[in-house]
């Protein structure tokens, strides 16, 4: 009985200590961020300068960047800025994984917010679900970003739907041996998704790292990179995430 109480007490104490340590670390990192970065965090123009300054140090740039978007923590404005920064950095595909289901409903609003932030920046932003309205390019150097929004419905349920369609002979899937190979099923699955490369990097905020039901098939080699511990999205955390991505050497199997 006594030892049980003691264990319970120590357990609570351990978690309390961890909570305090995490809180101290958060305060410290926020204080540090304020000291260092806030002066330059005043507008899109400054953001662009910051990105262009750091860009030459990046050995590789992700082709497809995913943000785990939680509308209860992230504003549409900060998500729109990620699109703009990616346009400047030359990341051709940006996707949002809608954790709460609210972003998909507000796709129109996000679209308008991106348009608002984009003013004066060369390049072209394409929305998979919308006609091209803003397809002007400025010279040959302009980048293009294609934006997609996914929900957990695009994950497991869609794979199940693909298998159902194969079983119903609605979709054909090559099968040379007894069992499908990953290549064979992958070819059939490709019909269910926009033809974009598999994501290179998935950005999340907060201390919990989880896929939140994001496309399992495409997640194979995606790097999980933390954007910030406090759900804050700013240009410095974005550049920091690109640096973290650069440190990961991609080595698969070998």
């Amino acid at each position: 009985m006594l030892s049980r109480l003691l264990r319970q007490f120590l357990f609570t104490l351990t978690h309390l200590v961890v909570n305090v340590l995490v809180a101290v670390q958060n305060v410290y990192s926020r204080f540090w961020a304020k000291e260092d970065d806030f002066p330059c965090n005043q507008g899109t123009e400054n953001d662009i300068k910051v990105i262009l300054k750091h860009l030459p140090n990046m050995k590789k740039k992700p082709k497809h960047l995913v943000v785990l978007a939680d509308t209860s923590e992230h504003s549409l404005h900060s998500l729109a800025l990620v699109v703009i920064w990616s346009l400047v950095a030359g990341v051709p595909y940006v996707s949002f994984h809608d954790i709460t289901g609210e972003l998909k409903e507000n796709e129109e609003k996000l679209f308008l917010e991106v348009e608002k932030c984009k003013k004066g920046i060369p390049g072209c932003i394409k929305w998979s679900k919308m006609p091209n309205l803003n397809g002007y390019t400025n010279g040959t150097q302009a980048h293009t970003v294609t934006v997609n929004i996914f929900t957990s419905h695009d994950g497991r349920p869609k794979i199940a739907q693909c298998i159902r369609d194969i079983a119903n002979n609605k979709v054909s899937c090559k099968r040379e041996a007894d069992e499908f190979t990953a290549q064979e099923l992958g070819d059939a699955l490709a019909l269910f998704y926009p033809s974009i490369p598999d994501p290179d990097v998935i950005l999340y905020t907060g201390s919990l790292c989880s896929a939140h039901g994001f496309l399992p098939w495409q997640l194979r080699l995606t790097e999980f990179v933390q954007l910030s511990t406090d759900h804050c999205i700013n240009v410095n955390s974005y550049v920091g995430a690109l640096y973290k991505y650069n440190k990961c050497d991609q080595r698969f199997g070998k």
Partner: peptide
Amino acid sequence: GEVRLSDFMLWQVSNSVLYF
């Protein structure tokens, strides 16, 4: 220190806590 799944349990970890 690697921060990806490398094709491990792609389906199953959809809602798991990932710890690197």
